[in-house]
Structure formats: structure tokens, C-alpha cells
């Protein structure tokens, strides 16, 4: 790998990512990349740094060290900082949060149109038409004018996924999207994510749902204590992982 350029074929790539909060370093030089159309699941015990890694990808968390590339272009190099506008960069990358983070003062439909209207400056009627179409896609067209507080957890997360889709992102980051859901609602969200995967969406998913990871992921990244323990294709990771630690994590399931 040449210094100062991205790996060919990667959509998003972070090289040598370090992150410290105060004096404690929580990421110790992680290399991460995702190719267009690829589904990557990040698994690992709690405190392993998976969520921090995810949040560094769209720069919700400012990295301490490392180089970030997007479509071959350097987005930033730390220490130093981003060299492009964060707004434009982030608008290309969807994010789905563990606790949904729908905007409570807006209806489901308005949650979907906020980004398109005020970041992409689309007209109201065009944005609303596509938002409705997306709500139909996630099976919630009837709730277009509902406020988030009236929705179930599973419905909220489906609206949140539709909100990410409304920006027509190149990829979507999922931060433990089912961890805050009651068990009976987990499936409706995983089902929707499976559909997105089949439609070819590029997805980076931090998850504890190993069955889902095994089915959907092209590649699994196992993290522990701020570093990548092992990564590889889903099928080999579950059947023939190189390290004992990986086998333990993937067999036992991952404790939060």
C-alpha cells in the first residue's frame, strides 16, 4: 500500500485510525475499508471500540490519527483535520443509531424530508413524494403524519432507516440498530436490512446479531480492545477462523 492514496476499489477507507479520549486510547491503529456494494459487519465485546470506529467513519467523532479516503479522495489526515466540508461528506453517508434519534418535533414524513430539503435543497413536493415512496418501501406509509412518540421501537427504527435512505447515500452506517429493541421487534428491522442488502446497498453494521451477520455480511471484522483481531469472509470466519479468540467471540455470541 502506497502512503497517501486509497486502496483501489474501496469506497471508504480509514488507515491507521487512532482515537484517544483524553489520555486513554480506544482505537490503536485500525485499518478499515469497505468496497461499493459490500456488507461489512463489525462485531466484538463491549468496549472493543466498534462504535467509535463507526463514528469516526462519518467524523461524528474526530480521529486522533489516521487518513480517511472516500472514493479515492483524501477526506482528511489526522493530526491535521478534514480537508473537505464535513456537511457534503456526511450527506453521502447515512447513519442509523441505536436509539433511533428521530426528530420528535417532526412527523415521520418530515423526518425524511429534513435532509433532502435543507441539505440537498430539494423542492418540498419532490422531497415529500420520494419520502412517501420510501415510507411505503419500509411499510409505514400509513404513519407518514405520525409523530415518533406514537410509533413502536421497530417502527421508529424503520423510519430512521428510511430517513437515511432519503438522502440517497452511497453507504449506510448502522450502530447496533436492534440493540434497543424489544425482541419481538428485532426481526422487522433485520428483515428490512436484509432487503437493503439484497438491493445492493453498501452497509457497515455494528451488531450483536451473529445470525444476521453470518447471513448478510460479505466480510466480518472482529474487534477487541481497540484493535481488529481478525477479519475475513463471513463463511470462513464462522467455520475456520484463525484465532481462538475469534472463534470464542463468534461462538459464544457477543456480550454487550
Amino acid at each position: 500500500m502506497r502512503e497517501g492514496s486509497a486502496t483501489a476499489g474501496s469506497l471508504l477507507e480509514f488507515r491507521d485510525l487512532h482515537k484517544s479520549f483524553g489520555r486513554s486510547e480506544v482505537l490503536h491503529g485500525v485499518d478499515f475499508r469497505v468496497a461499493r456494494g459490500e456488507k461489512v459487519c463489525i462485531v466484538g465485546p463491549s468496549g472493543s471500540g466498534k462504535t467509535t470506529l463507526l463514528r469516526c467513519l462519518n467524523l461524528l467523532v474526530e480521529p486522533t490519527r489516521g487518513q480517511l479516503y472516500y472514493k479515492g479522495e483524501q477526506i482528511g489526515s489526522w493530526p491535521g483535520g478534514a480537508r473537505v466540508g464535513l456537511s457534503g461528506y456526511r450527506s453521502r453517508i447515512g447513519m442509523v443509531f441505536q436509539h433511533f434519534e428521530l426528530f420528535p418535533h417532526l412527523t415521520a414524513l418530515q423526518n425524511l424530508t429534513l435532509g433532502p430539503r435543507h441539505v440537498r435543497h430539494e423542492g418540498r413536493s419532490a422531497a415529500e413524494a420520494r419520502a412517501l415512496q420510501l415510507l411505503r418501501h419500509v411499510g409505514l406509509e400509513a404513519f407518514a403524519n405520525a409523530h415518533p412518540r406514537t410509533l413502536s421501537g421497530g417502527q421508529k427504527q424503520r423510519v430512521a432507516i428510511a430517513r437515511a435512505l432519503a438522502m440517497q447515500p452511497d453507504l449506510i452506517l448502522f450502530d447496533e440498530p436492534t440493540s434497543a429493541l424489544d425482541s419481538e421487534m428485532v426481526d422487522e428491522v433485520l428483515e428490512l436490512m436484509r432487503r437493503l442488502a439484497n438491493e445492493g446497498m453498501t452497509m457497515v453494521i455494528v451488531t450483536h446479531e451473529l445470525g444476521f451477520a453470518r447471513d448478510v455480511a460479505d466480510r466480518i471484522v472482529v474487534m477487541e480492545r481497540g484493535a481488529v483481531v481478525e477479519e475475513g469472509p463471513a463463511e470462513t470466519m464462522f467455520s475456520a477462523a484463525r484465532s481462538q479468540r475469534t472463534r470464542d467471540i463468534l461462538r459464544v455470541g457477543v456480550k454487550r
Binding site: 461524528l60 456537511s87 456526511r90 450527506s91 436509539h99 435532509g115 441539505v119 440537498r120
Partner: peptide, 19 residues
């Protein structure tokens, strides 16, 4: 986290505040 949801859509700091 509400602000983060706004940032992740690409809203600026001002945009997040006002919207």
C-alpha cells in the same frame, strides 16, 4: 445525540441548531 442525527444528514452546526 439529536444533534448527531442532524450532523449525520449533513446539516451544518447552524442548521442543526435551527432545524
Amino acid at each position: 445525540t439529536q444533534r448527531e442525527a442532524g450532523f449525520s444528514l449533513g446539516l451544518s452546526r447552524m442548521g442543526v441548531l435551527m432545524r
